[in-house]
């Protein structure tokens, strides 16, 4: 068991298996952006606070800046590009779009992933619960209200579907 500065990893990213040699110190988002060209995940702080780097690993949202690429070995990673192309975020994207729940767009990929986790829950959240859940994603442009409106609208739509 020899500690190494460089390692081979095999990871499924957006549905495709990727094999690469990576530096141990490179975090997951730098790997996704710099090695694989998935620039939809953004870096706003690299200390885990702003949420711009939020991606999905093995189905869970994580801070991509607080995970090493080597830790993603054997994992399934989904970035905004993959999640968008698959259509899984379509309702949220549509509501965000119609309500102008984004301006510069830098926080948006992370915000969508965080919102998607909330929307997937069984019971529809209250506005306050939406705000609490999204409080790990910094947005400087919107003031958050339109984002909360958009998430609320999607949750409402879903619960009607469930009730029907």
């Amino acid at each position: 068991m020899e500690p190494l500065e460089f390692m081979d990893i095999s990871v499924v990213v957006n549905g495709t298996r990727i094999t690469r040699r990576v530096a141990a110190r490179q975090h997951l988002v730098d790997f996704l952006r710099d090695e694989l060209g998935f620039t939809g995940s953004h870096l706003g702080c690299e200390h885990g606070v702003c949420g711009a780097c939020t991606v999905r690993v093995n189905g869970e949202i994580v801070r991509g800046c607080l995970m090493l690429a080597v830790q993603a070995d054997g994992a399934v990673v989904e970035t905004i590009e993959g999640a968008s192309d698959s259509g899984g975020l379509a309702e949220l994207q549509r509501e965000f779009h119609e309500r102008n729940a984004l301006q510069c767009g830098f926080c948006t990929p992370g915000m969508l992933f965080s919102a998607a986790e909330l929307v997937a829950r069984e019971s529809p959240p209250t506005r306050e619960e939406i705000r609490l859940h999204l409080s790990g994603n910094y947005c400087r442009c919107t003031g958050y209200q339109s984002i909360v409106d958009a998430v609320e609208a999607v949750c409402r739509g879903r619960s009607w579907e469930k009730a029907a």
Partner: peptide, 23 residues
């Protein structure tokens, strides 16, 4: 290295410079 939520933040800020990370 367990969850890494504190350690990797510290590494990213160069507040910590360990030679070896044991995951």
């Amino acid at each position: 290295l367990a969850g890494g939520q504190s350690l990797i933040a510290a590494l990213n800020m160069r507040l910590s410079a360990p030679r070896v990370l044991v995951d």
